[in-house]
């Protein structure tokens, strides 16, 4: 029974990874065939790095992810602070559920609805091309916000309120006690929110598909365009690079998460 379940588990994982692995291996294929491996080569990587559109979209993706993540983290952390202190329970739960709409709604609806807003506003203001950098920044910040709040708000809720009193007892003004005691306690949540927002932005295709224009391409949009018709082999190289990056990020997040959890467990054990 035990062996059976273990075998089953590893078979499923193998199937889950087979296509990705094949893609990674074939990104180093000398030949241009999907069917047979003819030798090791960095040929497709070379081609990728000569592709200025690819590099541009990589730069766009990165900058967009950085700025939208920072913006979402700033607004989201402040929102979590405000929600934690909010005394009006009705308003609080209303805000929380509205915030979660982009998380519950299918991406396509979020994308389409924002596109309608931007296009309609553009028409009202008489602009010709509303869609682009700015709308992408707004959209990415919007769908990242609930994740930031979700990761910061519990930290505020778990924060031991007597620590705030202890800080004031020892001479902190309310502002000092927030900066010296409360902020360090919520910081792990802020950081994981930031990382989450960053990766979500890098990863997003569906919403970007609707709110961007051909002049502002991100990596997923570029991949989509490249894979729309015939297969391009440099895409294998690109995908491999992305997978490796994500693996590295995931290991970092996991490590950081472990650190926090380990500390909490110890504290729990003491009680």
């Amino acid at each position: 029974m035990k062996t059976l379940s273990r075998v089953y588990m590893w078979v499923i994982f193998a199937l889950l990874y087979a296509p990705i692995l094949v893609l990674v291996i074939f990104s180093f294929n000398k030949g241009g065939s999907l069917a047979s491996y003819t030798g090791f080569s960095f040929k497709w990587y070379g081609e990728l790095f000569r592709d200025s559109v690819a590099l541009d979209s990589l730069k766009n993706s990165f900058l967009l992810a950085v700025f939208s993540a920072l913006l979402a983290t700033l607004i989201g952390t402040l929102a979590a602070l405000g929600l934690d202190r909010m005394r009006n329970k009705m308003l609080k739960s209303a805000v929380e559920s509205v915030t979660n709409i982009p998380m519950m709604n299918p991406d396509i609806v979020t994308g389409v609805s924002m596109m309608l807003l931007f296009v309609a506003f553009g028409a009202i203001l008489g602009l010709r091309d509303t869609l682009g950098k700015a709308t992408m920044l707004i959209a990415h910040t919007t769908f990242s916000l609930p994740y930031v709040i979700l990761s910061v708000l519990p930290r505020f809720k778990q924060f031991d309120k007597t620590l705030r009193e202890a800080a004031q007892d020892l001479g902190c003004t309310p502002m000092q006690s927030f900066l010296k005691v409360e902020l360090p306690a919520i910081l792990p949540g802020v950081l994981s929110g930031l990382v989450m927002a960053f990766t979500l932005s890098l990863d997003d295709f569906v919403i970007s598909h609707f709110v961007s224009s051909p002049d502002f391409q991100t990596l997923p949009l570029y991949i989509y365009n490249q894979t729309a018709h015939n297969v391009k082999y440099s895409m294998y190289a690109l995908c491999t690079l992305i997978i490796v990056t994500i693996l590295a990020l995931l290991l970092v997040i996991n490590f950081a998460g472990d650190f926090g959890k380990g500390k909490k467990r110890k504290e729990g054990a003491k009680k």
């Binding site: 031991d160 007597t162 500390k263």
Partner: peptide, 8 residues
Amino acid sequence: FQKYALFP
């Protein structure tokens, strides 16, 4: 404080 409230 009752449960010490040491800064973790």
